Amino acid sequence: MTADGNVNAFKTKPAHLPFRPFFLAAAVDAMLGAGGWLPSALGIHAFGATAISAGDWHRDLLLFGMVPAVLTGFLLTALPRWTGRQAVLPRTTYLLIVLWACGRLAFLSLPPSFGLACSAIWILALLLIAARVVIAGRDHRNLKILFLLAAFCGSNVLVAASYQVEFALRLALASIIGLVIIIGGRVVPALTVAYVESAGGRIVLHRSASRERAAALLTMCALCLWVAAPETQLTGLACALAAFSQAIRAAQWKGWRGLSSPTVLGLHIGYGWIVAGFAFLAIHIFAPAMLGRATAVHAWTIGAIGTMILAIMASMIRKHSRVAFVPSAPATGALAAMTASCLFRLLIEVAPGYVGPLASFSGTLWIISFGLFLTAYRGVLLGVGVK
């Protein structure tokens, strides 16, 4: 590792690591998705060679491009360990890489529906592979991951067919937030404990089973109600209760014990944006003149999903590189840039007269954050120096 914390010289044990190509693809998609939309935020409306608006490009490359790429890399790597099954074979990874590449080529050269259809096939393939691992391992705990993947795949199909698009987009976002809550609930406390103990400290997390179940039930109800009836008072109440229950859940993980580790801190901040998103939705529903729905949506998409993606990808790379908590200046900068990106986007609500500059700052910082991520971990993701 270089003196400035750049993690290009990571050494990993000889193994097939499925996350490598997909984390690389996700970072590229993240930068292209924001980069293609950024000119419109600056008032430049000429866009691209394909018959697709800047907003749809931004949506499709991020929600149905970047996010499933991260999910693919993470689940192919983590599920065998979670279920006790054999690691995913390299040919499985190659198949999914080919499906991803077909989707990208179709998206860039054909009507958008073709690219979205390829994305749906890719997500369906991931669902079937994950289902085989989970069912073979009789791992009932991970059935909820399969359910949410199926819902996400269904939302992709609906968008590709241009049917009930607004409903489908809410379903897609709710599915991803559900997956982030499940994965975060495993990764965040585990990494917090590992960091404190690696630093010579001692930490015991008292996680109440009843609070966990209550948070899961209230959150599931809130997400389902928001997908089906996004503006009703019942949905607002459910979102408020979900925000409260998730805040209580996250407090059990003692995030303040990991303040000196940027990766651990980033995970807690990312999870905190989930709580904020539910709270903002409740405020919007009960007082729509005070807060727009876009504030809650961007708290989830930029704050929660963006930050958690960076932190979880970094933690998985570091774990398999045997340098779990070695500081990295570019990686820390990536998390800081993502936080700033979210804050600039949320400022639009209180300074509507500066929509253009604030949106462009937010998009630029998003691109910078993933650029810094690639700077920090390009050696591992490209396999440079890894045997």
Rank of each mutant, 00 (worst) to 15 (best):
V326W: 08
I181K: 00
P357K: 11
L32Y: 00
L116Y: 08
F286I: 08
A69Q: 04
A240S: 14
G277R: 06
Q86A: 15
S369M: 01
I302D: 05
A324W: 00
L89W: 07
A311M: 08
F370C: 05
G185I: 11
L347R: 04
A228Y: 02
G43F: 14
I368Y: 01
G115F: 10
L259S: 12
R59V: 14
R104K: 04
P21A: 10
A251I: 12
S341W: 01
L173Y: 10
L99H: 09
D60P: 06
L110G: 01
R59C: 07
L281M: 13
Y377C: 02
D29V: 04
A247L: 09
L218V: 00
C118R: 02
G73Q: 08
A216I: 04
A331Q: 04
R207D: 13
A51E: 15
P330W: 03
F344P: 05
A294G: 13
I97P: 00
V88R: 01
R213D: 11
C221R: 14
L374M: 14
K254Y: 07
T301K: 02
A78P: 01
L126Y: 07
T50G: 08
V275T: 15
A242E: 01
M1W: 06
G303L: 13
G201K: 01
L76W: 01
A150K: 09
